[in-house]
């Protein structure tokens, strides 16, 4: 099977004062083209860091990420910018829409850095807004849209440069249950359209749409069993603590 994204011994270390935090501690991972990978893990497990490194938003401390045969660590700043522009579409938890631009302008924003004409930009933005069901909201500013609608605009924006990879960091984190579910369905549609989707989430419902699930704990990939055990252990420990306190 072809490997689209190959990650080997990936490490990311942050030095905070005198303490050192290993956000990623030796990740090995292969992602096949057209897959829908969900990365699960508690806060601080390193899942967002992993997503940022795959997206070229940050550089690893060591290890390698090879995307479509190109090692990211060998790219300079301009090449990384081009990689982000052409290969990757980002979806963020807090949408990151520009408040002063309307929906269509927000969708077309990445195209401003891709030497496209105004007309192309407008046509493409409207097409994508229609695809996410917001063509009637094209001229609305983000503040005039609901959270779910804002995330749909962000998804449309992530698609504007026709990237092969969609990276979503907690895309449903700021949404209510119904809106969150709608976003999951939309991501599933993108996956079915051929995009390689990687989603970092806490939301267990996302697993129903995925082809692969990765569990992260303390910067390492663990098995589902280990992950469940860790979650249960945490819970048991807390309960025990409370019991002890009561007695």
């Amino acid at each position: 099977m072809t490997i689209f994204i190959q990650i080997r011994d990936l490490r990311k270390t942050y030095v905070m004062g005198k303490s050192t935090v290993h956000a990623l501690d030796g990740i090995d991972l292969d992602i096949i083209p057209g897959s829908f990978t969900v990365v699960m893990g508690p806060s601080g497990s390193g899942k967002s860091t992993l997503l940022h490194l795959i997206g070229g938003l940050d550089r690893p401390t060591s290890g390698s990420i090879v995307v479509d045969g190109e090692p990211l660590e060998k790219m300079d700043e301009n090449q990384l910018a081009e990689y982000r522009r052409k290969m990757v579409g980002f979806i963020f938890q807090s949408f990151n829409l520009v408040a002063t631009m309307n929906a269509a302008e927000n969708v077309g924003f990445p195209m401003r850095f891709a030497r496209t004409t105004n007309r192309e930009r407008r046509t493409r933005s409207m097409e994508l807004l229609k695809r996410v069901g917001l063509d009637d909201r094209a001229l609305h500013k983000p503040t005039e849209l609901s959270g779910g609608q804002q995330q749909r605009v962000a998804i449309a924006r992530s698609l504007v440069n026709q990237p092969k990879i969609i990276l979503a960091d907690e895309p449903t984190g700021n949404l209510d249950t119904a809106s969150g579910y709608g976003i999951m369905q939309l991501l599933s549609v993108l996956h079915k359209a051929g995009h390689t989707v990687i989603v970092v989430t806490h939301d267990p419902r996302m697993q129903h749409f995925s082809t692969h699930i990765i569990y992260l704990l303390d910067g390492r990939i663990v098995s589902e069993a280990e992950y469940q055990a860790a979650s249960t252990f945490d819970f048991a420990e807390t309960s025990e603590g409370e019991t002890t306190h009561e007695s």
Binding site: G55, E77, A81, E82, R84, F90, N96, F113, A114
Partner: peptide, 16 residues
Amino acid sequence: TREIGLMKAVGATNKD
């Protein structure tokens, strides 16, 4: 700052 981050995330170079 976040807007600058966004610009870079969607492919703006340092020069841009």
